[in-house]
Amino acid sequence: MFFLFACLGNITYVVSILSVATGPRYLLVNSSWLAGSLGTLCEDFTIFAQFFIYKCDESDSESSFDDSEDQIEV
């Protein structure tokens, strides 16, 4: 939950900066904060993607152990 709330905090921070103004001068002044928040969000979404890609189901891990035990017994 902490990780999710950190993502939501960064999203709302970026939205709060962009909701004030979108002029080039204002964006240039706030570019360091925008880059920091958007960079952190990219890293957070990468971690989320890795979590779902490498998530191992219990049924998959049990079947792989069963197969390896069968090979050892033979």
Rank of each mutant, 00 (worst) to 15 (best):
I17K: 02
E69D: 14
Q71L: 15
F5A: 01
V29C: 06
N10I: 03
D66G: 01
S19I: 04
T12F: 12
L28W: 07
N10P: 05
G23D: 04
L8R: 03
G23A: 06
F52Q: 04
I72A: 08
M1S: 03
E69M: 14
F5P: 00
Y54W: 14
A21S: 15
P24C: 01
P24N: 11
F52E: 13
N30P: 10
F52Y: 12
E69A: 09
T46M: 13
A21W: 08
C56Y: 08
T12P: 02
E69I: 11
Y26Q: 01
T22G: 07
V29E: 11
F45W: 14
L4Y: 10
V14Y: 04
D66L: 12
P24S: 03
F2Q: 06
L27G: 04
E58K: 11
Y13A: 02
S31V: 13
T46H: 01
S31L: 13
F51K: 15
P24I: 01
F51M: 05
F3C: 03
N30L: 07
T22D: 05
S31P: 02
S19D: 07
C7A: 09
L18M: 08
L18C: 09
E73I: 12
A6G: 00
V29D: 06
S64Y: 09
L38Q: 12
R25M: 01
F2R: 00
Q50L: 12
V29Y: 14
F45D: 09
P24A: 00
N10V: 05
D70L: 15
E62D: 10
S32R: 08
I17M: 02
Y54D: 12
F65S: 03
P24Q: 02
F45K: 03
I72R: 13
D44N: 13
S61K: 13
T22P: 00
L41R: 09
L38D: 03
F3E: 07
S37M: 05
F5G: 06
F45T: 14
S68H: 10
T46G: 15
V14N: 05
E62Q: 05
K55R: 15
I47V: 12
S64C: 13
C42M: 12
V29G: 00
S16F: 14
G9S: 12
A6R: 01
E62H: 13
L27D: 07
E43R: 15
A21I: 04
